[in-house]
């Protein structure tokens, strides 16, 4: 279950990217490709644990699935590779020229930060 390591990496990277004057993190938008090898349910569970005691405590993880698509460089066919993936071209049967266009993403897209109140560090 490497989702814990993934969740910790997300938390670390978000915390380090905190902009000037930022307060706590409200949400993190994460792209998860169909072929990224990560289980979103498991990641949500781990994320909550990994956020504990950090500026991300209580933050919501929003995962955006990315379908895996490929293109054949030989005949130009494009297709949804599915799961388990079909990486040989359904058009010409060749696999040598297959290019995977999407599906391997494991990418933090954006972070929603609450502004830190100007008068105090405590919240409301």
């Amino acid at each position: 279950m490497h989702e814990m390591s993934i969740a910790m990496a997300v938390v670390d990277q978000v915390a380090q990217a905190a902009p000037e004057g930022a307060g706590r993190v409200e949400s993190v938008l994460l792209q998860v490709g169909e072929l990224a090898g990560v289980v979103p349910d498991s990641l949500h569970f781990c994320f909550e644990l990994a956020c504990s005691g950090t500026v991300l405590e209580g933050a919501e993880l929003i995962t955006e699935p990315v379908a895996a698509r490929a293109r054949c460089g030989a005949c130009g066919t494009g297709w949804a590779v599915g799961m388990p993936p079909e990486l040989a071209c359904p058009g010409c049967g060749d696999g040598a020229a297959t290019e995977l266009l999407t599906g391997r993403e494991l990418q933090i897209r954006s972070v929603r930060w609450a502004d830190r109140p100007a008068y105090a560090d405590q919240e409301g």
Binding site: Q13, A22, L30, I108, R112
Partner: peptide, 12 residues
């Protein structure tokens, strides 16, 4: 108030 920051970082 809140703001959204584009991060675009690969997790790994």
């Amino acid at each position: 108030m809140c703001r959204v920051v584009d991060l675009q970082q690969a997790v790994l």
